[in-house]
């Protein structure tokens, strides 16, 4: 095994071009587990810690440009206004120690369906900026996940920046685990209201081979909300709309039975989370973004 330590982004791309099998390592929270448990013996480890721009973020007009290696702790503490869904999701990642090292870039690179940030990225609207010595390309997050633990990266490419739409409305994230902390998702759900476009976007985690949006549920809800004039009136969403939305979200799942949970439970729980998080975000929207009930702890990272 060789340990490559590029000092800059250009060096990192050059190293990846020269050694396409090199495994990038930033926080190490996935890669080191695989090495410690003898699941993986890459010929090269490509350490990205010295590439400064990967650890930086910038808040723009429309988007947050999040360096791939920015640890979750920074997102939780610094970006919860701009990226509330991702901040909530980040707060469910592992433990404080893991949140100090783990990053969205790592989640995307691993492309595990159970990665906690995926539902929030899908719901917010995200493009992944990837690069190689051949050039740069932007991949919509929906197209980034190509299979279980597979993504759209070419062998010589690295993830540089995650461009996430700044929140223009309430966002929520929920995740089911069988423990109150430090737990891998049995299933997860993210939702973001986009009042400027009068749309709602969703993200489902760990309930299908890849993270995915519940597009039929989104379309149904967009139509129902428009038809009922809910965006203008700000009135309570009727239980029947919420129920149908939840059922459609459940229907979008394609889960498996495994040691963490049954397929049936996952489908059920995603529906519950969809109904609840829709309620929370809509309550917040109705009350002008202040939130009917403020939340502490995981909910608002107090």
């Amino acid at each position: 095994m060789d340990f490559l330590r590029p000092a800059s982004w250009e060096e990192a791309l050059a190293a990846k071009a020269e050694h396409p099998t090199a495994v990038p390592i930033a926080g190490g929270t996935d890669v080191m587990v695989e090495i410690n448990f003898d699941h993986r013996r890459p010929a090269y480890l490509l350490d990205l810690n010295r590439v400064a721009e990967l650890h930086a973020y910038e808040v723009g007009e429309e988007n947050v440009r999040l360096g791939a290696s920015v640890p979750y702790t920074r997102i939780i503490e610094d970006l919860r206004t701009e990226l509330p869904g991702l901040a909530l999701a980040g707060h469910t990642v592992g433990s404080p120690q893991i949140r100090n090292r783990g990053s969205v870039g790592g989640n995307l690179g691993a492309a595990s369906p159970a990665g906690d940030s995926h539902p929030a990225l899908l719901a917010a609207g995200t493009e992944i900026e990837v690069a190689s010595v051949r050039g740069t390309r932007f991949i919509p997050v929906e197209e980034f996940y190509t299979g279980v633990k597979r993504n759209a990266l070419e062998p010589d490419e690295l993830i540089k920046t995650v461009h996430i739409k700044k929140a223009s409305g309430p966002q929520q994230f929920s995740k089911v685990g069988t423990r109150n902390a430090m737990v891998i998702a049995v299933c997860a759900f993210g939702i973001a209201l986009h009042p400027e476009t009068r749309t709602v976007r969703t993200g489902i985690g760990s309930a299908a081979p890849t993270p995915l949006r519940a597009t039929a549920a989104e379309e149904f809800l967009d139509a129902a909300l428009a038809e009922g004039g809910f965006w203008e009136s700000g009135k309570t969403i009727t239980p029947s709309i919420a129920r149908q939305f939840a059922e459609l979200v459940s229907g979008a799942c394609n889960p498996i039975d495994d040691v963490r949970g049954s397929a049936r439970y996952r489908r059920h729980a995603v529906g519950i989370m969809a109904r609840r998080t829709l309620g929370w975000t809509w309550d917040e929207y109705r009350s002008g973004g202040r939130g009917a009930r403020s939340t502490e702890g995981g909910a608002q990272c107090a």
């Binding site: 089911v176 109150n180 702890g297 909910a299």
Partner: peptide
């Protein structure tokens, strides 16, 4: 003063933010 606040750490699901008291 601002109303009722919820600490999910004291609820089933904990940091995973699955309920604010529902169910």
């Amino acid at each position: 003063a601002a109303g009722t606040s919820v600490d999910v750490r004291a609820l089933p699901g904990g940091l995973s933010n699955t309920t604010h008291g529902e169910g």
